[in-house]
Every structure is written in C-alpha cells, then in structure tokens.
C-alpha cells in the first residue's frame, strides 16, 4: 500500500506567508507538494467556521500563516488569528479530531526558506498522525496527490 500523503490547507496572509511562498518558488526550493495554499487578505480574516469547514470536507491538516508579531499590515490581524486557532484547537480536541491537526505559524515575506520548512514540518506531523477519519479518499492517494497542484 502506498504511503499516506496528507492533504493540508495553508491559509496564507498575502503580505507575508503568501509572498514567502512566491519567494520559495523563485529560490527553487523544494517543499512538500501536500500543501494547498489559500491566499488571505490577512491572517486575521480566518474564521472558526472556515477551519472546521475544511476539516469537514476531509482535509488532514490545516495551518494559518501570518506575519511576525508587530508586523501585521492591519495591526492586530495575526494576534486575532492566533486566538481563533487556539479556540478551534480546543473544539477539535473536544470533538475527538485532535487539535494537533491545526497550527498557526509566523512566516515573514522575506523567508522563503521558512515557508518551505513549515510546509515540510506540517506534512511530517500530519503524516505521523495519519489520515483524518473524515478523509474518505485517504487510502492509496499517494500517486494521485504526488506533485500535483490542483
């Protein structure tokens, strides 16, 4: 049986992590193909419901990436995102899916290397946790997922 390839959604602030993703590309850095990047106007636009929705749809992991503390384009969006992520982690623990499947990271626009590192780290973490019980296509998805961008 092929190795489990997690499907992970990364909600990335356009002023930092999303730009860092671009930079990682320009730097020709290799990073995990398991990440699906969603561009956000600010990490603070993330909502509890949106995260839960992604899990309901069967993704194995989710992370929100925002600017360093003090660097938010909208002053406090990242602080709010951190609090919301903590609240949703609690919900995930309470309902048995597990808060470790969700994380917040600071990824400044200038750090393409960190973007790649976080993508790899999160993929490894979720691989260890195994597929989400809500992921109906988990078994044998290795080839299907590998390297694709859709």
């Amino acid at each position: 049986m092929p190795e489990f390839e997690p499907k992970i959604v990364a909600f990335c602030c356009r002023y930092c992590a999303y730009t860092a993703a671009d930079l990682a590309g320009s730097m020709r850095l290799q990073y995990s193909p398991n990440i699906r990047v969603v561009e956000m106007p600010c990490s603070g636009t993330i909502e509890h419901g949106l995260i839960l929705n992604a899990f309901e749809k069967g993704v194995d992991g989710v992370y929100i990436a925002g600017c360093n503390l003090g660097d938010c384009h909208f002053l406090k969006g990242n602080v709010r995102a951190i609090k919301r992520v903590a609240a949703v982690k609690k919900i995930l623990d309470e309902i048995g899916l597990g808060g470790q499947r969700l994380e917040f990271f600071h990824i400044p626009a200038s750090e393409g290397t960190k973007f790649a590192k976080v993508a790899n780290e999160m993929t490894e973490r979720i691989r260890q946790l195994g597929p989400s019980p809500l992921n109906k296509n988990a078994a044998g998805n290795a080839q299907k997922e590998g390297g694709q961008t859709v």
Binding site: G49, L52, N53, F55, E56, I91, I95, G96, P133, L134
Partner: peptide
C-alpha cells in the same frame, strides 16, 4: 460552528 463541530463528532 456548533453544527459543524457536532457533525464532525458524530461522524467520528
């Protein structure tokens, strides 16, 4: 959020 959380819980 509540509906989503309980839906997930019940599926699990």
């Amino acid at each position: 959020v509540l509906a989503s959380a309980i839906r997930i819980k019940r599926t699990l």
